[in-house]
Simulated assay, not measured.
Amino acid sequence: MSTSASADPSSDQQRPPRRNPHAMGTFTSMVLSTVVVTAVVLAFFALVARPDTVARPSVDVPAVVTEARRSTGWQLSQLDGLGEGWVSNSARLEPEADGLRTWHVGYVKDQEYVALDQTAKATDGWVTAQTKGRTPAGAMTVGGVAVDSYTDPRNGDCTLVRRGGDALTSVIETTGTCAEAAAQAQKLSPALR
């Protein structure tokens, strides 16, 4: 039998296995990959359209108030001529506090808001619900008609209430002062009576 020189088995055990240089990344490669991923995310973020303002849905108040007048028989009002930038975002006839049908129309402009609520034979509970915890601020006159004013002690926002007895009771709620609410109430069509 011929014998060949065999490798020394102990020499394989003494040499550690060769490490793959790509198996463990370096700190530099980790930082570079983080920078690349961040750049890709920022690129997508920059490409996404973000509008400066949110489009407000506009409501055709004259059409809605005409239908509400037909169904109730009430002489319901709307606000006309509030000025540039005011948009109606709600107009509806719905049940409200104390189960009374209520005409509601709301207008917005930037961070300002004006709303009109009207009902027939309003109860004290209905008026309390409409004034939303605002405190009585006294009586005032709007276009020769006496109204009660209520203010929010936190921010001075005002609500005006014209009690109609057997006729319609009207509530004008604003995010402004009572002087601003009175000016807006004079734009009611038909006017307060």
Rank of each mutant, 00 (worst) to 15 (best):
Y113N: 09
W103S: 01
D8F: 13
V36L: 14
V61W: 02
A49Y: 13
F27Q: 09
L82N: 04
P21V: 08
N20W: 10
D80Y: 01
L32K: 13
V35N: 07
G106P: 01
G25W: 12
L76Q: 04
H22G: 10
V87Q: 13
V65L: 02
V105S: 11
V64E: 14
W86V: 08
W74H: 13
P51I: 06
E67M: 04
A23D: 14
D52G: 15
R56N: 09
F45H: 05
D98P: 07
G85V: 02
D98F: 01
R56C: 00
G73W: 03
L42A: 15
D8S: 12
P95L: 06
M24K: 15
V48G: 05
S71L: 10
A39L: 15
Y107H: 08
R56G: 05
V36D: 02
P16R: 13
D52T: 04
S10T: 14
Q14N: 10
T26W: 05
V114A: 09
A39Y: 00
R15G: 03
G73A: 07
G73R: 01
N89P: 00
S90I: 01
D60M: 02
S77A: 15
L42S: 09
A91G: 10
M30V: 15
S88N: 08
S77F: 09
M24L: 13
G25H: 09
S58N: 08
P21Y: 09
V41D: 05
A46I: 01
V59H: 06
Q75M: 08
V114H: 10
F27S: 11
T26D: 06
P95Q: 06
M30D: 07
P9S: 11
L100D: 00
V105C: 02
E84I: 04
Q75C: 00
R50T: 11
D52C: 00
T28F: 10
S88D: 04
L76H: 07
Q14C: 03
E94Y: 00
V54S: 07
V108S: 11
Q13H: 13
A97I: 01
G99R: 04
A43C: 06
A23H: 12
H104L: 07
W103P: 02
G83S: 08
D98Y: 01
R50S: 00
Q75A: 14
R15F: 12
L42F: 12
R70Q: 10
A43Q: 05
A39G: 15
F27D: 11
T66A: 15
A39I: 12
A46K: 06
S88E: 13
S11D: 13
P9D: 08
A39V: 14
L82W: 08
P17E: 14
R70T: 04
G73C: 05
V108P: 00
R50W: 05
R18N: 09
T26E: 03
R92V: 07
R50F: 03
V87M: 04
P9I: 04
G85E: 03
R92H: 06
V37P: 06
S88K: 05
S29T: 14
A49C: 00
M24E: 13
S71V: 14
R15V: 15
V37Q: 09
Q75I: 03
V87A: 06
P57H: 12
M30K: 14
G81L: 08
S71W: 02
N20P: 10
D12H: 11
R69A: 05
H22F: 14
T28A: 15
E67H: 07
D110E: 12
A97C: 01
W103I: 05
T34R: 07
N20Y: 07
V114K: 06
S71C: 02
V61L: 03
